[in-house]
Amino acid sequence: MNEVLFFIAGPLAVIAALGVVVLRNPFYAVLSLVAHLLSLAALFLLLYAPFVAVVQVMVYVGAVMVLYVFVNAYVGGATDATGGPAPTLRWLSYAIGIGVLATVVVATLGSSLKAIDSDGAKIGADFGSPGQIGELLLTRFLLPFEAASFLLLVAAVGAVVLARRRRGVLPGEDRMIAALDLLAPTGTGSMREGVGAVNPVPGALSAHITPSTGAGSPPASGTRGDIDGEDD
């Protein structure tokens, strides 16, 4: 049973990982990564790590990759926007790839190949249980754990800073986006906008509509009167 699972999940993981790099369409590359992560989860099950396997599916397949698919479906196209890498970059990437492969192969041959005919490491009864992993994370690996969470926090804050709009939305508008704009977003089709109480252009909160408002505002009532009235 274990062997069957391994020889399904192992090659699938390798093929899917190759697909991530080889496939031209970014959407399929992402799907390939999903398949890779799922096969990795199956391999984790074989390694007596059910918790890691399930968390792998929950976090990577269920949350991270859904975001990748989301972004790719929205902005990704089938075309290669960069027009392919520069020749030097291409050779450099080959060199680095081969170097990494050699390192992994040497490390594997040098260390873990000895264990191939043994029974494997001795493991306790509750090996890989949530309790044991939690205990290890909060005692022996506390520092790396905290460092990783801090890194994630920095990345999240950085993303927010990068994504924030510094200036107003309309051309020529030079206004910081206030926190209030985000708490009560405009341009969402609310009743207040429907009756014309607010300008539905995002970022221009509570700018009252007057016939002379700039681009983006709906035609004011005065204009409509001109259309069905007599021509001048």
Partner: peptide, 21 residues
């Protein structure tokens, strides 16, 4: 399973792909 609740969430996140794809 000792992690039944997590398996439930794992399956429900795979289900999201059905909708998305």
């Amino acid at each position: 399973s000792s992690i039944g609740l997590l398996i439930f969430f794992a399956f429900s996140s795979i289900g999201a792909y059905g909708v998305l794809l």
